[in-house]
């Protein structure tokens, strides 16, 4: 059973075709990495799937339901949560408040304008669980803008997983991290994924991270999927090597 299926997903920005006929199928419980040189369309793919902007053409199915063209806030309700390439937080709120707002979104009565203390308590409880999973508990009451960059990246993941998603989309979780931070992030993510229920799509530049985490890799190049397979296949692929070398030369 495929939890996510994209059919000929295409996105134009004016004359630029950022995504062309992308077909992608992700199985339930799979950890999928999407890699590719800069400007290959990885983030565009993310944005088109989870409704930051509508795709120009093509369809997206999640759990058998057509989610094409839906707004970002509605897609979350189906069970897709994501992080962003550039850290995207509530800077002046504490770590626990950041996560509570995230987890509250999936609760009944998230909109209650009066009372609702049980909703708040449940949101906070979920936030605490997410904090534990990402080993951020000590930082719970600090304003999120005082955290190190690495911890902010983790906080964003904590916000996403506090929503108990079926599909977690991580846009470069180790972007801008030091070697040590990257290692600890990978360890934490491995821990998180060990249960195997969660489906993950991961955009990543750091190949070590990719080969450490991913079960399957899709390679994007100039908006097209040029390779798709398990890590060994992709590593050996001639097309991929060419694309990457070509990509860097262009840049």
């Amino acid at each position: 059973m495929h939890i996510l299926e994209c059919q000929k997903l295409t996105k134009h920005f004016g004359a630029l075709e950022a995504l062309s006929d992308v077909d992608m199928k992700v199985r339930k419980g799979e950890v999928r990495a999407v890699i590719g040189p800069n400007g290959a369309g990885k983030s565009t793919l993310f944005n088109a799937i989870n409704g930051v902007f509508p795709a120009t053409r093509g369809k997206c199915f999640f759990n058998g339901k057509d989610i094409t063209g839906m707004m970002m806030q509605d897609i979350v309700k189906f069970g897709i949560s994501r992080t962003f390439q550039l850290t995207n937080l509530f800077p002046e709120l504490s770590v626990i408040e950041n996560i509570s707002i995230a987890s509250q979104a999936k609760l009944k009565g998230a909109w209650l304008p009066l009372g609702g203390s049980s909703v708040l308590a449940e949101a906070k409880h979920k936030a605490e669980l997410a904090l534990e999973k990402l080993k951020l508990t000590d930082l719970a009451y600090l304003p999120s803008n005082t955290l190190s960059h690495g911890d902010q990246r983790l906080l964003e993941i904590a916000m996403a997983i506090s929503q108990d998603p079926l599909l977690l989309m991580l846009d470069e979780p180790t972007q801008g991290l030091s070697v040590e931070e990257t290692q600890s992030t990978v360890d934490i993510l491995k821990d998180l994924l060990s249960s195997g229920d969660l489906t993950v799509i991961l955009v990543e530049h750091d190949m070590e991270v990719v080969f450490n985490l991913a079960e399957r890799i899709s390679v994007l190049h100039q908006g097209r999927i040029i390779a798709d397979g398990d890590p060994e296949e992709v590593k050996a692929s001639k097309v991929v090597q060419d694309a990457y070398l070509g990509g860097f030369e262009d840049a």
């Binding site: 970002m72 806030q73 949560s81 995207n88 937080l89 509530f90 909109w111 929503q163």
Partner: peptide, 22 residues
């Protein structure tokens, strides 16, 4: 209230609040 918490999210980062499902 829960509503008020969402407002503080909008105040801090409207786009993120929307991405979280509000």
């Amino acid at each position: 209230s829960p509503f008020g918490k969402v407002l503080s999210g909008i105040r801090e980062n409207e786009m993120k609040t929307q991405a979280l499902g509000y």
